[in-house]
Design a protein around this nucleic acid. Structure first.
Lengths: 206, 206
DNA sequence: CCGTCATATGACTTAATAGTCATATGACGG
DNA sequence: CCGTCATATGACTATTAAGTCATATGACGG
């Protein structure tokens, strides 16, 4: 967690620092990010940085927290009437929300993805804590509920499929960031639908 | 490409260097890898390294070449009677070969995956060249052939599905490296079959 | 036995990094 | 107007990195 001084800062300055950090981590990932470049771009002194943060990891965790909060905002609306939807509707909504997040926040999305996909498993666990296992469990729960409701073929392996769905949700936002030039939502939602079409046929009960 | 001197080296020394480099890149990825550690572990002088290689990237490309050659060996046997197999058989064989490669060569697999998943797209293109697009085209070709043969539902989007299959093949070898303790082939092939089950239902013609 | 030439060496240079610290500033209460 | 205290600063340290280079070695042909 950042030190108290960081939160005492005038909003403008705090945001300048946050922006510079997001730029840096999005471009260079955690390892490659340079504190010196961040303070230069934020126009603060090196020493000031260490008045606000313990160290590089402290800053990074803070940025990851911001990402988590923002992503949650995209999901909460959806979580309210989650019970009403069948699995495939809910799943489509989840993907759509994830895609919208990636579209609106490409830098944040990039930081998150490169953390998850990165080689440094230790860093990931330290920074994300239980978020990944939890989200996997959540999807698995969705699948099991779908099976109980008779929407999903009971012979699937819920663990494997949950893993596949997580991986594909990451790759879809990556695909978006890499390929799409952010012109319109339509194209990317079509893309998601095409993926979901395959998944749906793959796991639905007949 | 390494300099001539590298290939003039006695086999034992050349292998010592190669091994040290593989260890290093597997543990730290390209960015984090240290030439100093490599030369220390290989027991050669820093200066000698630069008699053999232009620079760090030159070494890395060489290691990637080795990976490519080795992976090709796992695939060639299979490529011979590729025409005889239907799509799902061929696909299963491909996954199985990929898994076997990852099992036999976890360090090489790790290097390859972290390159592909890494943030540095420029590096990837420079080092892998056309390998990724080509492999994507190859899978797409398989899919289109499957459609012509009436094995695969014609309404799928071959581009998207090819992309999904590539992503999943990477995540399966990652899953293997992370989760499995390399005890037996069986478990991981079962895992692959469970994935393929979903994909097969997802895209086969009814 | 000598001279040559490919190879081997590690101290060195340059540049970048994260993090520190003595000092300066400036706002605000008394 | 002064003293205090949180904050601001950038030169500095210490470490590590990639890459260089003058010099040493040693094998081999004449």
């Amino acid at each position: 967690m950042p030190k108290g001084t960081f939160f005492n800062l005038p909003d403008e300055k705090r945001e300048r620092i946050t922006e510079a950090a997001i730029d840096e981590f999005a471009e260079y990932s955690y390892e490659g990010a340079s504190i010196t470049r961040i303070v230069d771009n934020a126009n603060i002194a090196k020493g000031s940085f260490y008045q606000y943060f313990e160290d590089k990891k402290d800053l990074f965790k803070h940025i990851i927290d911001i990402i988590g909060e923002k992503k949650l905002m995209y999901m909460t609306r959806l979580l309210k009437d989650f019970e009403k939807l069948d699995f495939f509707q809910a799943f489509r909504e989840m993907y759509a929300a994830g895609i919208k997040f990636a579209k609106d926040n490409p830098r944040l999305s990039k930081i998150g993805n490169s953390l998850i996909k990165g080689a440094d498993v230790k860093l990931m666990q330290e920074v994300l804590g239980e978020a990944i296992p939890k989200s996997n469990e959540f999807i698995k729960g969705m699948l099991l509920r779908g099976i109980q409701r008779g929407e999903i073929a009971p012979e699937i392996d819920a663990d494997i499929v949950a893993y596949m769905l997580t991986e594909l949700s990451i790759s879809i936002s990556e695909y978006f960031i890499k390929e799409m030039k952010a012109e319109d939502d339509m194209e990317i939602l079509e893309l998601a639908d095409k993926m979901i079409f395959v998944i749906e046929n793959g796991i639905k009960k007949r």
